[in-house]
Amino acid sequence: MSSDPAQPVLTFPAWPQAGAEEREGLLRALNQEGWWRNGGSEVDSFESEFAEVHGAPYAIATTNGTHALELALSVLGVGPGDEVIVPAFTFISSSLAVQRVGAVPVPADVRPDTYCLDIEATARLITPRTKVVMPVHMAGQVADLDALAQLAEATGVTVLQDAAHAHAARWHGRRLGEFGWMAAFSFQNGKLMTAGEGGALLLPDEESHRQAYLRHGCGRPPGDRVYAHLTQGSNYRMNEFSAAVLRAQLTRLEAQIAVREQRSRQLTAALSRIPGLVPQGRDDRCDVKSHYMAMMRLPGVTPGRRTAVVDALNAHGIPAFVGFPPVYRTAGYWQGPHSGDVEEIAKRCPVAEEIGGDCVWLHHRVLLADAATVDRLAEVLAEVVART
């Protein structure tokens, strides 16, 4: 379906956004003696600033968000023989990171309203081999951290937050670094702040920070000059140029979230009136939702019709995408450590099965548009869903 020539193509703010702050930061990094973290100051400064915004004692900047998850799992001692419970509906990095450290990702179902991890379903999957539960704050909606805290206390498992979508989000007014758990973030090109690629890991105490620092730099301690590789690790270090850009991006983050919050409420109210379309729900205990995506479902849609809807929206200038398949519905999942089979997992994850087949999402830049454009976006969505 092509766009209606009588209707103008909608225009949204560009992403990524950059200004004088990024240019100044890049020149600042360029003019240093070194361009890697051990020769400059941009990564150190970014880690301090990012940790402060998120209420964490420490942060480590990494090459990307997947590596931030791998680093966290390594610090937590996760390895072969261990199990990590992950949402069945998430981007593949959540399960991939588990497999890359040799452990088994165990998919659990998600909630039909928020698309976040279902804690009751998670509790049923805990075994003596379960070492970590990894909630994903889907599209910036924080998972139920109250229930997760109760589960962790009752079972002794550790919580690792996959916060790739949830920069500066809050739960009951608390920032994600204030819960005593690690939280991993992504700065990939489409994320809420970006340097094209990059990641960060929030750390709750000095010892976890020390271990993360060692492991993200091939096991070398700060200031090492004798190749003292004290532990296993890899090279997950962020470079100075990425950190300089992210320092600038961080200064805009909370103001952009405030705009997205207003536009999201406007858009959600409009989408709720469209027959055959159900927007992602919200748990009001998440009092700052960062709105990485505007997600919605088309219950009962066929794969072909969903693709046609997405194509039609893109023809109107709306950056739309199909939702993630359940992780166990990808070929890559079965090439790493796993247990069970597709149909067994699907049977216990009926909500993820449905959302994986009928979800559509819009890039968060649509929520940085003016109110009139968001109104027109909702009208186009209604027209496309009705006609396609």
Rank of each mutant, 00 (worst) to 15 (best):
L96K: 12
D311Y: 01
G173W: 04
T373V: 13
V310S: 09
L201C: 02
V309E: 00
Q99Y: 04
W181R: 06
S339I: 10
N189Y: 12
T373H: 03
P80C: 07
D162P: 01
V98F: 05
A123N: 05
A258D: 14
V226A: 14
D118F: 07
F179H: 15
A248E: 01
C349A: 10
D224L: 08
L298P: 03
I60E: 12
Q161W: 00
E42D: 11
G357I: 01
H54A: 03
M238Y: 05
T63V: 15
V259I: 15
Y115S: 09
R306S: 06
L148Q: 10
L368P: 05
Q17K: 07
T302Y: 05
T66Q: 13
P57R: 05
V384K: 01
Q188K: 11
P319H: 03
Q188A: 15
P222C: 11
W36N: 12
L313M: 12
S272G: 15
R215Y: 06
C116I: 00
E206M: 10
G79P: 08
A143R: 00
G336C: 07
S272L: 05
V101N: 04
E33F: 13
Y328V: 08
Q99S: 15
T155E: 06
T11S: 15
G173H: 06
R111V: 05
D82G: 11
A315Y: 00
L381D: 00
P275G: 06
S242D: 14
S234C: 10
L362F: 10
P87Q: 03
G102S: 11
V98Y: 07
V301T: 15
V301C: 02
T231K: 03
